[in-house]
């Protein structure tokens, strides 16, 4: 069974990403944004995973996380671009200081567009999100004998997203949920070999998961805002060797208002 050929969905299912993109495009308008802001945040990220390609064991660890973002909020729409990066030392039940651990480094770039579909004090939004992420893991088994292996995964995931915001006290509480529709996956090859794998197109059912974000933002001054947020992401990719991973981030960020009316 030669590998290295592009696999994908049936012709009928290949229409799904095209329809999704068309839907998103129809939602995008180009109003003058009411508010534009850049965001810089730090915090911690906890990653737990089971990657059957690397090990039958669960590996987990906590490490620093960095967040850079740009958001533009119009009268009835929200657009955001966010870059997240982090690193952590993952350990398992068999880990020692020198053996059976993994150094994980992860980065992601998300583009999100939401449009308000419900008004009132509780505002409801719907839209889409594209998340491109890369994860590199140096897995040290036993430096004395078998050494270590390098694993890398790239995912480009198109998601349906929904959000709700509610004014609470001096700020706004928001919650966002995103679910994958179609994904492009590039995983370490079957035997961890160094030949270049071909990206595989995956529909719902073969790459499942969700992203949930809760954030509270308030503006102590006209220019500067503070956000506290928690993000929970889960992804499960079952073939050819199952990968299941959770990333949780908790942090705070500072927003600098750069244009529009607040």
């Amino acid at each position: 069974m030669p590998r290295g050929t592009l696999t994908g969905l049936s012709n009928q299912n290949r229409m799904r990403p095209l329809l999704t993109l068309t839907l998103l495009a129809s939602l995008v308008t180009s109003p003058v944004a009411a508010q534009r802001a850049f965001e810089l945040g730090i915090g911690g990220a906890y990653r737990a995973q089971r990657d059957d390609l690397a090990s039958p064991l669960r590996y987990a660890g906590l490490g620093p996380a960095l967040r850079l973002g740009y958001a533009a909020e119009g009268h009835r729409s929200r657009f955001a671009v966010v870059l997240n990066a982090g690193t952590a030392r993952l350990t398992s039940a068999i880990s020692t200081p020198s053996m059976h651990y993994a150094r994980d480094t992860r980065g992601s770039l998300a583009v999100e567009y939401l449009r308000q579909i419900g008004g009132g004090r509780l505002a409801v939004f719907a839209g889409g999100r594209f998340d491109a992420s890369m994860d590199v893991r140096q897995h040290t088994y036993d430096p004395r004998t078998v050494g270590d292996e390098l694993f890398a995964d790239l995912f480009g995931v198109l998601e349906a997203a929904g959000a709700a915001t509610l004014p609470v006290g001096p700020g706004t509480l928001s919650t966002t949920l995103a679910i994958p529709l179609v994904s492009l996956a590039l995983r370490t090859p079957y035997t961890g070999a160094t030949y270049v794998p071909v990206p595989e197109l995956r529909g719902p059912g073969t790459l499942v998961g969700f992203m949930h974000r809760v954030a509270y933002r308030w503006w102590p001054t006209v220019r500067v805002g503070i956000t506290v947020l928690h993000t929970f992401e889960w992804i499960h990719y079952p073939t050819p060797r199952a990968l299941s991973a959770v990333v949780q981030r908790l942090g705070a960020s500072v927003s600098i208002h750069v244009g529009g009316i607040r």
């Binding site: 906890y46 737990a48 995973q49 089971r50 039958p56 064991l57 669960r58 987990a60 039940a93 889960w234 499960h236 299941s244 991973a245 959770v246 949780q248």
Partner: peptide, 8 residues
Amino acid sequence: AEPFVSEP
């Protein structure tokens, strides 16, 4: 995280 990524 435990329900989503369990320990064998």
